[in-house]
């Protein structure tokens, strides 16, 4: 299995569908797993609880992380990812509605690799997703040893 998986952490099903649609529209055929809140995202990444028996040991190629999430918010998820030895080098892209200065600063401080504001206009959104896919799934080389 050499498939590059994307993890989308997003609680809004509309946004999930629109992201999927944008991927499809841009011919990005990689698998996209979705975590609907912060807890699920961390369980998925650390193979805990309902993801304990997930056979696949490979981490996603990139995490698209929303900031406003139920249970544990995006910034906390990012902190946990960076704290963990296995995931600390994992590429994390913040994909969120706002570009509040404080969010930008905090995200980069905690080690986000990129920050993208989700445009309201779907065409722009689609462009953003295409660029994301192109960059993180094709151009970018992940650090070695990302296999658990």
């Amino acid at each position: 299995m050499n498939e590059k998986v994307i993890l989308l952490v997003e609680d809004d099903p509309n946004d999930v569908d629109l992201t999927l649609r944008a991927l499809k529209k841009n011919n990005i055929k990689n698998r996209m797993d979705v975590a609907q809140d912060g807890v699920e995202a961390l369980d998925y990444l650390f193979r805990r609880n309902k993801f304990k028996y997930l056979e696949e040991r490979k981490l996603p190629e990139v995490v698209l992380l929303d900031l406003k999430l139920p249970k544990i918010d995006g910034l906390e998820v990012l902190r946990q990812i960076r704290k963990n030895e296995q995931t600390k080098l994992l590429p994390v892209v913040i994909l969120t509605s706002s570009k509040e200065e404080q969010d930008l600063i905090n995200s980069y401080k905690l080690g986000a690799n990129s920050y993208i504001r989700k445009p309201v206009d779907f065409n722009q959104f689609s462009d953003a997703v295409r660029n994301l896919g192109l960059y993180w799934l094709v151009l970018n080389e992940t650090p070695p040893g990302m296999v658990d």
Binding site: D15, F122, F125
Partner: peptide, 22 residues
Amino acid sequence: FSYSISHDLRAPLRAINGFSQA
């Protein structure tokens, strides 16, 4: 309030725009 506007008011707009586009 503005943080909330910034985050929460945009998602429905995205849905309106996105699905209309779809």
